[in-house]
């Protein structure tokens, strides 16, 4: 028996919004420690890794490890039927071929349930090596989304250059060149407005704008985003999900042809 309840359906809606542009379907691996999802996008350029800890749920029970392959388009249709403040419960029997998603209004006067067929997805799990990153940048998630959106107008690629002075995002195309520099913030009143750079070595890497823009669909989940970079390895873009877990996107760099 698997059962997981969250106090607010809005969190699940935001999580789905953060992955459904990259993935058509995905396997949710459930165990007593929580729910994990790892999947590559269709073109095998990026990898999404979602961790939801069991202690972040209002109720969590998972008697046996369970892998639930879900069509994310179908799940989006079901979540559209929930009000943001509804309780949401996911339930499945061991070895079941369906999952039930139930919504309850705060006053318990409206209860709806949706049974969704599960899929057998033959998904490869990848081992992600530990990396000592050369640069780790923490910045407001809204600012990162704005930069990715703005620079995508000028080029398919963005160059991220991180030094101890700050982090620079550049795009160059037919229109010309765009550069956006962010310096590390001195003192800020609010932690969520800070730009913090931890640098071991300067690094310059090139990434495809369309993937960065897809990752920024996770912006509503978190006030801050963390970018971890190292020469010739994938960028890690991480959004914390408060009291519940995190979503990490790995993006392979563009390399010299």
């Amino acid at each position: 028996m698997f059962e997981a309840r969250l106090g607010q359906a809005t969190i699940l809606k935001k999580i789905l919004d953060a992955i459904k542009d990259l993935l058509n379907e995905a396997t949710f691996d459930c165990s007593d420690s929580g729910i994990q999802l790892q999947a590559m996008d269709n073109s095998h350029v990026s990898l999404v890794s979602l961790t939801l800890r069991s202690d972040g749920f209002d109720k969590f029970r998972c008697d046996r490890n369970l892998s639930m392959g879900m069509n994310l388009g179908s799940m989006a249709k079901i979540l559209k039927c929930a009000n943001n403040e509804d309780n949401v419960t996911m339930k499945a029997q061991d070895n079941a071929d369906t999952v039930t998603i139930m919504f309850e209004s705060a006053n318990q006067e409206k209860v709806s349930d949706y049974e969704m067929k599960l899929m057998n997805l033959d998904q490869e799990h990848l081992g992600i090596p530990e990396t000592d990153f050369s640069c780790v940048v923490r910045m407001p998630a809204m600012e990162f989304a704005r930069i990715c959106r703005d620079l995508a107008q000028f080029s398919e690629s963005v160059v991220i250059c991180c030094t101890k002075e700050g982090v620079k995002f550049s795009a160059s195309g037919d229109v010309g060149t765009a550069n956006i520099k962010l310096a590390q913030t001195g003192s800020v009143d609010k932690e969520e407005e800070a730009v913090i750079i931890e640098m071991q070595e300067p690094v310059t890497l090139t990434f495809a704008c369309r993937y960065l823009n897809a990752f920024t669909k996770a912006t509503p989940l978190s006030t801050q985003v963390q970018l971890s970079m190292c020469a010739d390895v994938p960028l890690v873009v991480e959004y914390a999900i408060k009291d519940l877990g995190h979503i990490r996107y790995y993006l392979a760099p563009k390399i010299e042809d």
């Binding site: 095998h44 990026s46 490869e124 990848l126 081992g127 790995y250 563009k254 390399i255 042809d257």
Partner: peptide
């Protein structure tokens, strides 16, 4: 000129 690398060039299959 740059080309897009694949993610599997960096991570190993489990």
């Amino acid at each position: 000129k740059t080309k897009q690398a694949g993610i599997m060039n960096f991570f190993t299959k489990k």
